[in-house]
Amino acid sequence: MPDPPEHYGAVGDFPAHVKAPTQYGDGFTAWTAYLHAYQMLPLERIAALFEDLTGLRPSEATLLSMLGRMHRQLEQAEQDIRKILFQKPLVHADETGVPVKEKLHWMHTVCTSDYTWLAIHDRRGSKGMNALGGCRSIWGRSYMTASRVIL
């Protein structure tokens, strides 16, 4: 039997879309969006987690680029969900304060059991929601009119 070669290797071409020595794929982008949007992890903790798991620490700019790409890819789905929710006769609406660049903003939420739409604005209540193009027909002076609220 012949001796095995000292080195086994494979040679191939990089895929055309790979433009850098280190490039993060779609799975990495999806995890970034999930961790940031659903788990609400700050970018610093996402970068640290990836470093712990892979030994690679993406920069904040890389993570923001990934989130921007996901936002663009999901823009039509977001518009469709918003349209569906704002045509419903009854939805849950709420808001909570969130820091944006060290300034208090408001995350407005409109949802049903099937859909959720979130949007950030620097105003709360009807002023913020109306500026976002929200449920104008249900907003009143104090937030929602009592005739349209079921407690």
Rank of each mutant, 00 (worst) to 15 (best):
R69M: 03
D114A: 09
S126A: 14
A47H: 12
E51K: 06
Y115D: 05
A30T: 11
W31R: 13
H108T: 02
L43K: 11
R69E: 01
S147Y: 07
T96S: 09
M70Q: 09
F50E: 04
K101P: 04
R141S: 14
R82G: 02
V110I: 10
A10V: 15
R141E: 15
A77S: 13
G134M: 01
Y34K: 10
H121M: 00
Q23D: 12
W106A: 02
T109L: 15
R141A: 10
V91A: 10
L53F: 01
L35D: 00
L132C: 02
P89W: 05
G128Q: 12
E102V: 02
T112P: 04
R82M: 04
V98K: 02
A119G: 05
L49H: 06
T54A: 04
R123G: 06
D122F: 07
H108F: 04
Q79F: 01
P4Q: 03
M66K: 02
Y143Q: 12
K103T: 13
T62V: 04
Q39W: 06
A119S: 07
S59W: 00
L74Q: 03
L104M: 12
Q76A: 14
D114H: 03
Q79L: 02
W106P: 02
H71G: 11
I84C: 05
R72I: 07
G9M: 13
P99K: 00
K101A: 12
W106K: 07
D13R: 13
T112D: 06
R57F: 01
Q39P: 05
S147I: 03
Y24M: 06
V18I: 10
Y115L: 04
Q39L: 08
A10G: 14
R57N: 07
D94M: 08
A119Y: 02
H17G: 04
E78W: 12
S113N: 13
Q76S: 12
K101G: 07
P42Q: 07
H105S: 06
L41M: 04
S137A: 06
Y8S: 12
T96C: 10
P89D: 13
E75V: 02
V91S: 04
I84S: 09
T109G: 08
L53R: 07
C111F: 09
K88Q: 14
L74W: 10
L63P: 01
S142K: 15
V11D: 10
P2I: 10
P21S: 00
D94P: 02
L90N: 05
